[in-house]
Design a protein around this nucleic acid. Structure first.
Lengths: 114, 114
DNA sequence: TCATTATATAATGATTTGCTTATATATACA
DNA sequence: TGTATATATAAGCAAATCATTATATAATGA
């Protein structure tokens, strides 16, 4: 049976995580494009540990997953996560953030390894 | 033209507000039933000022509105709010909280004035 | 192997959050 | 009018949050 609702506890937890502009934007970007830590550092203009800590939180609840590719660790949305459908309905209402990646391309700081 | 997306700033703000179990449950209940402060105090077993403060935050962003009825002040979801469609798509995925009100009825603490 | 690059983790600090108690205000009703 | 009830606001406090700097770990490439 397909789950159509989500427990309140879990919903509140996920909404809290998404209730931070940096993380919300990250997840919106990751919904369509894999990214590595250093790209986010470039995009958000905050320190590398700050980005790592945001990603850690998202990973801890299973919203994103990581995968090493050579020197980089790429993050992506874990679409198999039990709560992805819940999150997707939120993300679908947000404006696409492709301009952020286009900006990286222009700067030559987009990572496209492997 | 109907708005289909919401700015990231505003979305993050609203998600943060809903990222608290008490407020999330409040809004879910209010989506279908008006309630007054004292009912929430009974439901959530926290102090009256705590409930008032949560409602204040929700009111400040326009998500709920208030209306005095005699001695009580009833809150309801402001469905005319610009961002209600965004919120509704979240609320629709949450389990209904009618048991909370049924419990109040049983206890005789449901307020049905006016 | 050594220097560089990418990332994670630890420690720290300022700010925010969510509760509490105390108090003020407004309505209801005897 | 005086008392009880409902709500809001103020003040205070512990815990959580989000950033920073410092440091550790892992892979790359000369």
């Amino acid at each position: 049976m397909l789950k159509t609702t989500i427990e309140m506890d879990k919903a509140a937890l996920i909404l809290k995580l998404l209730g931070d502009k940096t993380r919300l934007t990250m997840v919106k970007i990751l919904d369509f494009h894999d990214c590595c830590v250093c790209e986010f550092v470039e995009i958000f203009k905050v320190s590398q540990p700050s980005i790592s800590q945001h990603l850690r939180k998202l990973k801890d609840v299973g919203l994103v997953k990581e995968e090493r590719r050579g020197q980089w660790i790429f993050y992506s949305v874990n679409k198999n996560n039990e709560y992805y459908p819940f999150v997707a309905k939120i993300l679908n209402q947000l404006p696409d953030q492709d301009d952020k990646l286009i900006e990286l391309e222009k700067q030559g700081t987009r990572i496209t390894c492997c």
